[in-house]
């Protein structure tokens, strides 16, 4: 009986697992890289426009961007997936599959990471920034050589959190047609009572999350002095 169960589990995994992993990797790969680029940029916009230190009279821009981010962040992810379907269709020409799922994932990850970047930048000692301004350095030099360097450990920790968060969200996106290992667990583990598949998936996810956290912590430590 139990060997029969094991056999069916192995059978399902052999047929589905690689495909699921690929779909998950695709969803996370796209949304993770987009969030790094645009989240970082948006985080800097939020930070740089917030006070008088860098740009004056940008408070209204700051408030607009901030409100926009808050709106997106207040929508539960599963609703955001459905809500963004028309946009998804416009952007990628389809509403199902891992690429389609990447659209809401990217949106959520970008705004999430943007807030983490913003808070990392706000932690940078104001005195250090002031000293940099006093040298006569340009904004872009201060951004590259002071803000990024000083906030780097916190930003890396933010990247780790975003990545792990994305794994969770990708399972949800999977439910509504995105595929991936989260979907595998639900389809077989939940609907078809294939506990073996469920457990295997969980183990795989735990390993990925642990590795991500370990790597992130290590990099953050290397950047801190």
């Amino acid at each position: 009986m139990s060997s029969q169960l094991l056999e069916s589990t192995i059978n399902i995994l052999q047929n589905e697992f690689l495909k699921s992993i690929y779909e998950t990797a695709l969803m996370i790969g796209i949304s993770f890289s987009l969030s790094l680029v645009f989240g970082l940029a948006l985080g800097f916009v939020l930070y740089l426009t917030s006070g008088k230190t860098f740009f004056e009279k940008t408070i209204s821009l700051n408030k607009t961007v901030s409100a926009f981010i808050n709106i997106i962040r207040s929508i539960p992810f599963i609703i955001l997936v459905v809500f963004s379907l028309p946009l998804t269709f416009i952007l990628v020409g389809t509403k199902i599959g891992p690429i389609a799922a990447s659209v809401p994932l990217s949106i959520a990850a970008i705004v999430f990471f943007a807030r983490l970047v913003e808070s990392a930048l706000k932690e940078v000692d104001a005195g250090v920034i002031e000293a940099a301004i006093a040298t006569g350095a340009s904004h872009s030099l201060i951004i590259r050589n002071v803000l990024l360097v000083e906030a780097a450990p916190a930003i890396v920790r933010g990247i780790t959190i975003t990545f792990i968060n994305l794994i969770g969200c990708s399972a949800m996106a999977g439910m509504v047609g995105g595929g991936g290992i989260g979907n595998l667990a639900i389809q077989y583990g939940y609907y078809r009572y294939e506990t073996g598949v469920m457990i295997f998936t969980i183990v795989v996810l735990v390993v990925i999350v642990q590795l991500a956290q370990l790597t992130g912590d290590r990099i953050a430590r290397l950047l801190t002095h």
Binding site: D125, A131, A137, N145, V146
Partner: peptide, 27 residues
């Protein structure tokens, strides 16, 4: 043309002594 030093030094803590000084020259 005006150098400034502060009570709490305000050095870039994640950059080497060399890079801290080089920063002003890059400026």
């Amino acid at each position: 043309n005006i150098g400034m030093i502060f009570q709490h030094f305000n050095l870039i803590s994640n950059a080497t002594v060399y890079d801290n000084i080089a920063f002003a020259l890059k400026a």
